[in-house]
Design a protein around this nucleic acid. Sequence first.
DNA 1: TTTAAATATTAATATATCAGTATATTTTGA
DNA 2: TCAAAATATACTGATATATTAATATTTAAA
Lengths: 96, 96
Amino acid sequence: MPVKTEKIAQASRCLKALAHPTRLSILCLLKEGEHNVQQIETAIGTTQSNISTHLGVLRDKEILITRKEANQVFYRVRDPRMFELLVILQEIYCKD
Amino acid sequence: MPVKTEKIAQASRCLKALAHPTRLSILCLLKEGEHNVQQIETAIGTTQSNISTHLGVLRDKEILITRKEANQVFYRVRDPRMFELLVILQEIYCKD
DNA sequence: TTTAAATATTAATATATCAGTATATTTTGA
DNA sequence: TCAAAATATACTGATATATTAATATTTAAA
């Protein structure tokens, strides 16, 4: 039987959120555990505004969740299975 | 160590190709084995041109491969691990 | 209570992607 | 050879997404 339209749409939205180099880099970084925005900014190497925008996308799609400590915000991946997905992607696409 | 830029770019291109409802539907259909364009067109329910365009995207990114038989073209998923990726996506996103 | 640091949001512009239509190509069979 | 069937490609306007710069919000510390 065909997969439900709404499930397809939901999966599509998730993939769209993942499918940006900056956001994918953020995900890879967060494999090592939670990071605050500054750390992410430094590691990825772009502007505060740009990182914040991309973090917003990943947060909206509930791929990332946040924890606030004083005036810093720490981000982490909500569901660890997301990493399994990235591993498979790497296996398929990065043979070398 | 950070993931190489080129690998990120490649993975990003793959995800972008997957991240469209029509293309995701095609992938789900091809889980049941290879189909020709007409069959895909009928199952998904859109125009010949539109399906062909989406198949082209998936072919370009080497997610699908083709086999020509007479004047028909059969599509199938190149790497079966792609289905594992979709299963994980479903597990994360389609709890209900 | 003012200032600075950390983060988020908004607005403007640039770029990318999509659906739809028309047209092209390839193959088969009359 | 000609017509029709199956598939692919090119073009166009509409929509979505990205980048950048500017501004807003929150918190802590002086």
